[in-house]
Computed example of a mutant assay.
Amino acid sequence: MIEGLPAGDGVPGEMLLAGYFVAVPESLNGSSLPRAAGLTTASNCLIDRLPEDGCWFGSASETLEACLALPVPAGARLYALLVPSEHVDGFTADILAAGTYEPVLLAHLDRRIGGPVREVAEGGRELGWEVLGYDDGLLHSWLCNNLYEDGVRDLGVATDDDRGLLPDREAAVRVAAWANARGDTKPVTWFPAALVEWDTPIEGRTGPAAIEAPVRRAAQPWWRRIF
């Protein structure tokens, strides 16, 4: 379990699990963007997701099982997105207003549905923070909305060179509040969120399981031993 995940519901400061996804970090060095050797984000705009953009899963095992039949790049990893409880309402309100189909996100985050508060699977590590906004089925990042240079200038924030992530919750909260006060971004409610990563490579058709046993699926994948 990641430290800080909730034992209850709705207490300010708690972190709620939004969902799991698989992504492939990519180098970033564009105009008006930070340098990042392996940009990592839950946004649909900046890196590749598996099996497709916008695909969320309710559990780590379900996520990894969905990748078994896919060609999986070596850099693909399992991630979880965590959202502070006091910032969940704006996120879910945008999902409901869009009328898009997000059963995983709503089941985890919308307390009116009455689903259980889920713990994050063991073995992950928190990478850092980002600022996101939901728009008609997509998660946008503050980085893809031409806000980075202004944020550095106006707020003095900085992202790390490895992942392009903000260092802590305080910085992400400040960026989200600042972005929400502007009128020149996507029409979304910006919110801070933390990313958790599992280091073990994803097993897929071209991944570790396929290399070790090309004829048949591994009898006991690593994720079944952990989860």
Rank of each mutant, 00 (worst) to 15 (best):
R35H: 14
P192S: 11
L46R: 03
R153S: 13
L106S: 01
A218S: 14
D89G: 10
G4A: 14
R216W: 05
R111W: 01
V117R: 07
P51L: 04
E119W: 13
D162A: 07
P25V: 03
Q220F: 09
A177P: 06
L138C: 04
L50A: 00
A194K: 04
D89T: 09
N146S: 15
G207N: 11
D184I: 05
A213F: 08
Y148D: 04
T185K: 14
G128Q: 11
V188L: 03
W129T: 05
A80Y: 04
S59C: 10
A158H: 14
R118I: 03
V72A: 02
A218Q: 14
Y134F: 07
L70T: 03
L39I: 07
D184H: 13
A60F: 04
F191T: 02
V175D: 00
E126M: 09
E102I: 02
F91I: 06
P34M: 00
G207P: 04
E62P: 01
L195T: 09
S32F: 13
Y101G: 07
V88Y: 00
G19I: 06
R111K: 06
N29K: 14
P73C: 07
E130W: 06
E212Y: 08
G151P: 05
G183Q: 15
M15W: 11
G124W: 00
V83E: 01
W222M: 07
A193P: 00
P12Q: 12
D154E: 15
Y101W: 02
S61A: 15
E130N: 11
D9A: 12
S59H: 11
R35W: 14
G164L: 01
S31M: 09
A66R: 08
A97H: 11
V120C: 10
C67V: 12
L28S: 01
T41W: 03
P34I: 13
W129G: 01
F91T: 02
G128C: 05
G75E: 06
V152Y: 12
L139S: 01
L82N: 03
F227R: 14
A171L: 02
R112A: 09
G30S: 15
R174M: 13
E86R: 02
A219M: 12
G58M: 13
A80T: 03
P51G: 14
E170G: 11
N145K: 05
A194V: 09
D168F: 03
V22G: 01
G124F: 02
W129R: 02
S61H: 09
I95H: 00
W198E: 09
G10D: 07
A36P: 00
I226A: 12
V88H: 10
A76Q: 06
N146M: 10
S27T: 08
T92P: 00
A93G: 13
P192F: 02
